[in-house]
Write a protein that binds this DNA or RNA. Structure first.
Lengths: 155, 155
DNA sequence: CGATATACTGGACAATCTGTATAGCTGCGG
DNA sequence: CCGCAGCTATACAGATTGTCCAGTATATCG
């Protein structure tokens, strides 16, 4: 990861459609270089992929909430996670340190719908207790560019 | 959003590189249809973009933590968010309901480095208190495909 | 110091894809 | 019954991709 990698990622983040050739022009390097760098970044897992980023809100799921769970320990976390994964509205789940055992991000169509989703979560076998915090506003939307810049000494 | 949209998103999520033409072949529809659908999905904001997904862990930031903040109310949330946004390791920040005022996702290079990042967060003017939960494992990685399927009645 | 490996440049090629446009067909709503 | 919207099928020029190659500079190693 050097500065060129950083600029490359930034460029593609800003204008994903430009393609390798145009990118090489913008960065003033040979096309083969861009191609090689990109292949390496993907190969190393730095870039997970170029999939479409779907906005849950545009799909009608305008309510986001963070739910912390307390798990009945005997079973362990994995079986719980496996069942949580079956709920489409559970976008993400982590085991965490601290008072709670897991933290998940869920979405719902409305506050009323949120109740339904939460019911689905607490109905998961092994979940003892759930505590919900609704996201009122996304002050900083998920991003990684500043981190890339920090890591590569770019911009 | 109908089933074709769902299959289209799923296809591009699985193999982002295939291109419009190949996608039209896979879905057995005309190329123009795929192009029109894609344009509409992007136009409607359902698909935010096709930017590279960067893995912070591959960049050396292997530690993820969720920090809940209590904010000194007089200033409001926005100035705090604005300052949090300047910290590259803050990947995301929300204002939330419940005991705490904000929840942010941060990353760091190590547990020791996490201390540095948290110090940076609590140093933000307006932050009264911070409570950190380290992510031990990502049981369900961030995903939206199941939601797309649920919303479109796909597979 | 000399030899080898690595990365980048600049160029070439065929095959493919994109952007864009047209015309005809079909189902739905007025 | 008519018109509109969405889809199919097709066309074409221009651009891009995947893949080579040779030459050069920088770095590494013995």
């Amino acid at each position: 990861m050097d500065a060129l990698d950083g600029r490359l990622i930034e460029l593609f983040a800003r204008e994903p459609r430009i393609g390798v050739l145009e990118a090489s022009r913008r960065l003033s390097v040979a096309r083969g270089t861009v191609q090689a760098r990109l292949d390496r970044l993907v190969g190393d897992g730095v870039i997970r992929g170029f999939g479409p980023e779907v906005d849950p809100a545009a799909l009608g799921y305008g309510v986001t909430a963070f739910v912390t769970l307390q798990i009945r320990q005997p079973g362990g976390h994995d079986p719980v996670a496996e069942r949580l994964a079956r709920i489409p509205e559970v976008l993400e789940a982590h085991t965490i340190t601290g008072g709670a055992d897991m933290l998940c991000r869920i979405v719902a169509r409305s506050n009323a719908d949120l109740q339904r989703v939460i019911d689905g979560v607490v109905a998961v076998d092994g979940v003892e207790r759930a505590s919900t915090a609704i996201s009122l506003a996304t002050q900083v939307p998920y991003r990684t560019l500043p981190l890339v810049r920090a890591a590569t000494g770019t911009g």
